[in-house]
Design a binder for these strands. Sequence first.
DNA 1: ATAGGTGCAAACAGTTTGCATGTAT
DNA 2: ATACATGCAAACTGTTTGCACCTAT
Lengths: 133, 133
Amino acid sequence: MERQTKQRQAILQVIREQGRPLTVDEILNYGRFHVPRLGMTTVYRSVRAMLREGVLLGVQYPGQPTRYEMPAHSDHIHFICNCCGKVHDLPLSQTEISLQLPDGFVAKGQELIVYGFCPECRPGGKAADAGIS
Amino acid sequence: MERQTKQRQAILQVIREQGRPLTVDEILNYGRFHVPRLGMTTVYRSVRAMLREGVLLGVQYPGQPTRYEMPAHSDHIHFICNCCGKVHDLPLSQTEISLQLPDGFVAKGQELIVYGFCPECRPGGKAADAGIS
DNA sequence: ATAGGTGCAAACAGTTTGCATGTAT
DNA sequence: ATACATGCAAACTGTTTGCACCTAT
């Protein structure tokens, strides 16, 4: 992203003001409020450029289109239910991650995805029994 | 997955013997060695059923098709370079994760995805400086 | 025997590309 | 002025669905 255009400003703005991961379609809909003739091609190209610059972060949930968010908003756990496919955002609060990467790798953000069964789908019922199996 | 068919056996077998996440296309190619007329429809449907059962785990890298692996093989870090898009499998060895989920959530597997720049793409060069920024 | 599985082809959805036009620098 | 950005339409790729045939139970 080298030039400053109203399209790119709008894209960043809607992602910033929503404060959650948005799909290209969502960016397009919100963005057209600011730039009526905004095209999806532009969104795809801008988003890709912003990813390269680290301004945005891409998040993918199985079976859903890629969503883009500001890196600062990504400090939570993405819990994906193997059964219903829903994605739950869980607090990272009680979870500790001490990251140690090999030389040469620079971390700009991280995401912990946990797979399993959510309360609704759990075979047992609703009793509490969290933890890695 | 309720019935035992040679297609489904083959699908599980190739994923097990490769020991890494495979795309549907890869499953198809390897699988046709065992079942020549194996169709992609079958692979998609079987894989989805296995996901539901927790037998398989889906892994998604931005811009790439979904890959499927045995849950046991997922204990490593997926490092995705924001610049070149490559996915590096890094050892989980030095990294500590103490997971604590809210009541009712059952973890069957986890995946730590770290975004950043790999040694080739890092702005600086090759000096060592890992760690969350 | 029959419910469930398979595989082809066609439909879909998300994303990328070609190209003429527009615009920030 | 000019190199880069835009947006439409068409092409692509990964995935799903309709339907007739097959097969494990």
